[in-house]
Nucleic acid binder design. Sequence first.
DNA 1: TTGCTTATTGGTCGCACACTCAATAGCATC
DNA 2: GATGCTATTGAGTGTGCGACCAATAAGCAA
Lengths: 232, 232
Amino acid sequence: MTSSVQRKRVRKSPEDRRAEIVGAAAEVALTEGLECITLRRIAEQLDVRPGLISHYFPAVEDLVAEAFGSAATAELEALLPTEPPDGSALRHLARFFARTTGPSYDDMSRLWLNARHLSRYRPVLRERVLDQENGWRGRLGGVIAAGVEQGEFRTDDPVLTAVRILVVIDGLAVHANTGLRDHPSSVTRLAAATAERELGLSDGTLNPADTTSPTDAPAPTPPAPAPVAEQS
Amino acid sequence: MTSSVQRKRVRKSPEDRRAEIVGAAAEVALTEGLECITLRRIAEQLDVRPGLISHYFPAVEDLVAEAFGSAATAELEALLPTEPPDGSALRHLARFFARTTGPSYDDMSRLWLNARHLSRYRPVLRERVLDQENGWRGRLGGVIAAGVEQGEFRTDDPVLTAVRILVVIDGLAVHANTGLRDHPSSVTRLAAATAERELGLSDGTLNPADTTSPTDAPAPTPPAPAPVAEQS
DNA sequence: TTGCTTATTGGTCGCACACTCAATAGCATC
DNA sequence: GATGCTATTGAGTGTGCGACCAATAAGCAA
């Protein structure tokens, strides 16, 4: 795997290398967890020496925060693009719930859970989490406000509504590592149901099932990604 | 603090010592986090040698799970006692929301967040978390069922209602480490409001503010408990 | 008082981690 | 083709962790 005899050095521009490192860290964060972002792990991923990672990120905590920010931003961008391609706000919201509630979102749920816990010990990460929360809240609030403008939704305070919806989504997401595969639809729908009520929509208007891609559900969610020897 | 010269051994019965260890671990779990349950840390707390902890818990993971179970069980018992002392189910629920929503519950919120994340890597802990979830769901479902029996509440499926309430509480709890001190009441009340709606109660019936002890709110929530040198 | 069981100690081992820094070698420029 | 800048390496430091085990002494029973 790792070339055994005499390393061949590849020299890249600082910008490229830095981006590469953040990208690798974001991937590790999503698949294995933020605690697995170590100098050795990321270096191995990129086939370089650990010292190089230290060179770009003298303090690992900064890389961890960066990785989370990168992954969360990318997800938000995919979920609620800055410039809505077209179509009604209602369709956007339906898509939003279809994805955030589906099992393919488990990695993301795990990452948020991870980041929120780790924020307890990592100030830099905590700030980044707060930034992202603002971003998500604002973006969702924006879509809702647009819907209100178009007359599709009805609410007094779009941002407050967004917060309430996000709270429910978070409440569902905390079970990403432990299951909650019992009460499926009646509980899973709780998020969309909340939105429908808050926005003055009739039941089922935002039903995720309608907009989910056909081949999506099968995977029964892997139990745990990569326990690693000792996690501390 | 730690006796410097020549340790004086204190010999206790295995049952006592074991309970003592679990108790210390539960305290550390609540105040500093499950990752801080280490052989050395718990030993220091009890003024014994690390080897002794190993003797009672050959695998630390078992102690971690035990500590979480102990803390969570104690909290549930205080929150929703097995045998309701008396009074209406409605009063019990009001008390329940008053406490679970107040800032004094932050340690508990942090612990659940911690446990749910750590479950990703610790199978034993994961099982314990699932056990506790069942316990909480069942206990809350019981209170609701009792309320329905007494005609105070109205719902088709008490347990499903309990799950929905718990989801909202979890959604609020994830912010224990990061804040959410912006939208206070309108968001905080989300849990009780959900319950009121689900149980066919009129708005404000379960208002936490009414049952909160007078001297409760002041503390603006400490930012972080114990960052420790390197947390991994 | 003596003896025995075993709770408790003290020390050690191996591992993974972040962080530091002088030496090295890619590569653009001249 | 030689030169200089600097991205990259290799080696090393110190810390904290879980796990292991032979030696020790506390306290009960005879």
